[in-house]
Amino acid sequence: MNALYTAEALATGAGRNGHVRSSDGRIDLGLSVPKAMGGAGEGSNPEQLFAAGYAACFHSALQMVARTQKIDISDSSVGGRVQIGSNGKGGFELAVMLEVVLPGVEHAAATALADAAHQVCPYSNATRGNIEVTISVSDD
Protein backbone atom coordinates (compact mmCIF):
# COMPACT_ATOMS: atom_id res chain seq x y z
CA MET A 1 0.00 0.00 0.00
CA ASN A 2 1.14 3.52 -0.76
CA ALA A 3 0.12 5.25 2.49
CA LEU A 4 -1.46 8.69 2.11
CA TYR A 5 -1.51 9.31 5.85
CA THR A 6 -0.49 7.51 9.04
CA ALA A 7 -2.27 8.07 12.35
CA GLU A 8 -0.45 7.28 15.57
CA ALA A 9 -1.77 6.82 19.08
CA LEU A 10 -0.35 5.46 22.32
CA ALA A 11 -2.35 3.64 24.97
CA THR A 12 -0.93 3.75 28.50
CA GLY A 13 -2.06 2.78 31.96
CA ALA A 14 -4.39 -0.15 32.49
CA GLY A 15 -5.74 -0.74 28.96
CA ARG A 16 -9.48 -0.08 29.04
CA ASN A 17 -8.94 1.84 32.30
CA GLY A 18 -5.98 3.78 30.98
CA HIS A 19 -5.34 6.67 28.68
CA VAL A 20 -4.98 7.16 24.95
CA ARG A 21 -3.27 10.04 23.18
CA SER A 22 -2.64 10.65 19.49
CA SER A 23 0.83 11.74 18.44
CA ASP A 24 -0.48 15.21 17.53
CA GLY A 25 -2.38 15.56 20.84
CA ARG A 26 -5.79 16.06 19.21
CA ILE A 27 -7.03 12.93 20.95
CA ASP A 28 -6.14 12.88 24.63
CA LEU A 29 -8.66 10.81 26.53
CA GLY A 30 -9.03 8.94 29.75
CA LEU A 31 -10.53 5.50 29.18
CA SER A 32 -12.74 3.39 31.40
CA VAL A 33 -14.66 0.17 31.15
CA PRO A 34 -18.35 0.95 30.42
CA LYS A 35 -20.80 0.49 33.30
CA ALA A 36 -22.58 -2.20 31.25
CA MET A 37 -19.36 -4.22 31.41
CA GLY A 38 -18.85 -3.69 35.15
CA GLY A 39 -16.67 -0.60 35.01
CA ALA A 40 -16.98 2.96 36.23
CA GLY A 41 -17.95 4.31 32.81
CA GLU A 42 -16.31 7.64 33.56
CA GLY A 43 -14.16 7.82 30.44
CA SER A 44 -14.44 6.97 26.79
CA ASN A 45 -13.82 3.47 25.50
CA PRO A 46 -12.45 1.81 22.35
CA GLU A 47 -15.93 0.96 21.05
CA GLN A 48 -16.98 4.63 21.13
CA LEU A 49 -13.84 5.61 19.26
CA PHE A 50 -14.41 2.88 16.67
CA ALA A 51 -18.09 3.92 16.24
CA ALA A 52 -17.07 7.56 15.72
CA GLY A 53 -14.28 6.69 13.30
CA TYR A 54 -16.37 4.27 11.24
CA ALA A 55 -19.35 6.69 11.06
CA ALA A 56 -17.13 9.58 9.93
CA CYS A 57 -15.23 7.48 7.40
CA PHE A 58 -18.41 5.94 5.97
CA HIS A 59 -20.02 9.39 5.71
CA SER A 60 -17.02 10.62 3.76
CA ALA A 61 -17.23 7.61 1.41
CA LEU A 62 -20.97 8.25 0.99
CA GLN A 63 -20.33 11.90 0.07
CA MET A 64 -17.66 10.89 -2.45
CA VAL A 65 -20.00 8.38 -4.14
CA ALA A 66 -22.84 10.92 -4.20
CA ARG A 67 -20.57 13.59 -5.74
CA THR A 68 -19.55 11.19 -8.51
CA GLN A 69 -23.22 10.47 -9.22
CA LYS A 70 -24.14 14.17 -8.90
CA ILE A 71 -26.64 13.52 -6.10
CA ASP A 72 -27.10 16.19 -3.41
CA ILE A 73 -26.81 14.68 0.07
CA SER A 74 -25.93 17.91 1.91
CA ASP A 75 -28.31 17.12 4.81
CA SER A 76 -27.04 13.55 5.24
CA SER A 77 -25.68 11.89 8.36
CA VAL A 78 -24.29 8.55 9.41
CA GLY A 79 -24.69 7.18 12.92
CA GLY A 80 -22.47 4.38 14.16
CA ARG A 81 -23.07 1.82 16.91
CA VAL A 82 -20.48 -0.73 17.96
CA GLN A 83 -21.38 -3.66 20.18
CA ILE A 84 -18.95 -5.90 22.03
CA GLY A 85 -19.83 -9.35 23.28
CA SER A 86 -18.52 -12.83 23.90
CA ASN A 87 -17.50 -14.86 20.88
CA GLY A 88 -18.37 -18.08 22.74
CA LYS A 89 -14.73 -19.22 22.61
CA GLY A 90 -13.30 -17.34 25.57
CA GLY A 91 -12.74 -14.11 23.65
CA PHE A 92 -14.75 -11.15 22.44
CA GLU A 93 -16.14 -9.94 19.13
CA LEU A 94 -17.60 -6.75 17.71
CA ALA A 95 -20.66 -5.96 15.63
CA VAL A 96 -21.33 -2.66 13.86
CA MET A 97 -24.59 -0.96 12.91
CA LEU A 98 -24.50 2.08 10.65
CA GLU A 99 -27.57 4.25 10.15
CA VAL A 100 -27.42 6.28 6.95
CA VAL A 101 -29.89 9.18 6.83
CA LEU A 102 -30.42 10.76 3.40
CA PRO A 103 -33.32 13.24 3.53
CA GLY A 104 -34.88 13.94 0.14
CA VAL A 105 -33.25 10.98 -1.60
CA GLU A 106 -35.57 8.24 -2.88
CA HIS A 107 -35.11 5.04 -0.85
CA ALA A 108 -33.81 2.86 -3.71
CA ALA A 109 -31.28 5.54 -4.71
CA ALA A 110 -30.27 6.04 -1.07
CA THR A 111 -29.74 2.31 -0.61
CA ALA A 112 -27.65 2.16 -3.80
CA LEU A 113 -25.48 5.05 -2.51
CA ALA A 114 -24.97 3.30 0.85
CA ASP A 115 -24.09 0.02 -0.90
CA ALA A 116 -21.56 1.82 -3.11
CA ALA A 117 -20.05 3.62 -0.09
CA HIS A 118 -19.73 0.26 1.69
CA GLN A 119 -17.52 -0.94 -1.19
CA VAL A 120 -15.08 2.00 -1.01
CA CYS A 121 -15.01 2.88 2.72
CA PRO A 122 -11.67 1.78 4.24
CA TYR A 123 -13.38 0.71 7.49
CA SER A 124 -15.85 -1.41 5.53
CA ASN A 125 -13.02 -2.98 3.57
CA ALA A 126 -11.08 -3.70 6.76
CA THR A 127 -14.02 -5.30 8.56
CA ARG A 128 -15.60 -7.18 5.63
CA GLY A 129 -15.73 -10.88 6.43
CA ASN A 130 -14.39 -10.29 9.95
CA ILE A 131 -17.33 -8.82 11.86
CA GLU A 132 -21.03 -8.33 11.27
CA VAL A 133 -21.79 -4.91 9.76
CA THR A 134 -25.43 -3.92 9.31
CA ILE A 135 -26.36 -0.81 7.32
CA SER A 136 -29.83 0.73 7.50
CA VAL A 137 -30.96 3.58 5.28
CA SER A 138 -33.69 6.09 6.06
CA ASP A 139 -34.78 9.57 5.07
CA ASP A 140 -35.22 10.95 8.58
Rank of each mutant, 00 (worst) to 15 (best):
Y123K: 02
V100I: 01
V65Y: 04
A52K: 03
V78D: 04
A52Q: 10
D115S: 10
Q83I: 03
D140G: 11
K35V: 15
G30L: 07
G85A: 14
F50C: 00
E93Q: 15
E106V: 11
L62W: 10
S136F: 01
G88F: 13
P46L: 07
A9L: 11
T12E: 15
R81P: 00
Q69G: 00
A117H: 08
S74T: 12
L113G: 03
D28P: 10
G104Y: 10
H19A: 08
Q119M: 06
F92N: 04
G25C: 05
L29T: 00
R16T: 12
F58Q: 02
A52T: 11
H19T: 11
A55P: 07
A7R: 08
E106A: 15
S74W: 05
A52I: 11
V100R: 03
A14L: 15
R26F: 13
L49F: 09
N87V: 05
R81M: 09
S74E: 11
A3T: 15
G104L: 06
M64S: 08
T111P: 02
G30D: 15
A36M: 02
N130E: 01
A9W: 11
Y54T: 02
L94Y: 10
L94M: 12
S124P: 03
L94E: 01
A112S: 13
A108R: 13
S22E: 07
V20L: 09
A66W: 12
K70E: 14
H118K: 04
L62V: 07
V100W: 03
K35W: 04
L62M: 06
H19G: 06
P122G: 02
V120I: 15
A117C: 06
A56G: 15
G38F: 11
C121N: 03
N87A: 06
A56Y: 07
H19R: 15
T6A: 10
D72I: 11
M64K: 11
L29R: 07
H107A: 09
Q119C: 01
Q63A: 14
I131E: 00
H59W: 04
D140S: 09
R81D: 10
I71E: 02
H107G: 00
D139Q: 14
Q48H: 11
T127Y: 04
P103Y: 08
L29Y: 15
S86P: 14
E42C: 00
N17H: 14
G91I: 05
L102V: 05
V137Q: 02
L94T: 08
G25I: 08
S77D: 06
T68M: 09
S22P: 12
G15W: 13
M97Q: 12
Q69I: 01
N87C: 05
A7F: 12
D139N: 14
L4F: 13
P103E: 04
H19V: 12
T127N: 01
T134C: 00
T6D: 04
A61I: 06
A108W: 01
V65Q: 12
R128Y: 04
I27S: 05
S23N: 13
L98W: 07
R16G: 09
V65R: 08
Q83L: 12
S76I: 06
H107I: 09
T111Q: 13
G25L: 08
V33P: 00
L31F: 11
S23G: 15
A56S: 15
D139V: 01
Q69M: 07
D24G: 08
A116R: 14
V65P: 01
A95M: 05
D72M: 08
I71A: 01
G53K: 08
